[in-house]
Amino acid sequence: MSHASAQPLKGPPHIHHMDSVTAYHAAKLGMWLFLATEILLFAVLFTAFAIYRWYNLEEFHAGSHHLNWILGMTNTAVLLFSSFTAALAVDAGQKGNNKAVVKLVGVTIACGAIFLIIKYFEYSSKYHHGYFPGQANYLEFKNFLGLYYCMTGLHALHVIIGMGLLTWVLLKAKKDRFSHDYYTPVEIGALYWHLVDLIWIYLFPLLYLVG
C-alpha cells in the first residue's frame, strides 16, 4: 500500500491515500469499532450466563464455590496493574520516549503471561478433580462450568492476541519509531489491552463471587 521508498526513522509512515492526522483518527475510530464488536461477542456469553443462572440458581451458586477466588483476585490485580502500565506506555509514546515504551509494554506483556500461568493452574486443578467436560464431576455443574470455560477461554484467547499486538508495538518501540507525531500503534494496542482488562473486571465477580 505504501509507496514510501525511504521510511523515516521517526514519524508516521507515509500512506498514499490520506494524511497522517487523518490516518491517526481513522485508526482510532477503527479500533473503537472493533472493540464494540468484541463487546458484542462477549455480550452473547453474558446473556447466556444471565439466563442459565436464572434457570439453575442453585447449580451456579454451588459451582462458583468450586472456583478459587484467591487466584481470581490475584489475576484481577495483575490485569489492573498491566492496564496501568499500558496507559503509562501511551503517555511515554506521546512524548516519544521509546525506551520507556519498551519497558512499560514489556511489563504489560509479562503481566499477561502471569495471568495465563495462573489461569493454567486453575484449569489444571479443575482437570485433576474431574471438572472438565467429559469427566465425572463435570455433569454436576455442567451449565455453570460450560459457560465458565467458554467465557474464560475466550478471554484467555484475547489475552494471547493482546500480547501479540503489544509485542508488535514493543518491536516498533525498539526501533525507536514513536514520536509526538506518531504513536498510533501504542495507543490502539493499549486500547485493546484495556478491553481485555475490562472484560475480566466483569468476569471475575460474575464467575467467582456471585455465581
Binding site: 468484541e38 458484542l40 461477542l41 462477549f42 467458554c150
Partner: peptide, 24 residues
C-alpha cells in the same frame, strides 16, 4: 459490525456444545 459478532459467538457456542457438551 454490530450484529455479526452475536451470531459468530452463537455459532462458537454451538460448536462448543457439539465438541465439549457445555450444556448451553
Amino acid at each position: 459490525t454490530l450484529a455479526t459478532p452475536v451470531v459468530g459467538m452463537t455459532l462458537v457456542l454451538l460448536l462448543m456444545e457439539r465438541v465439549m457438551g457445555v450444556g448451553v
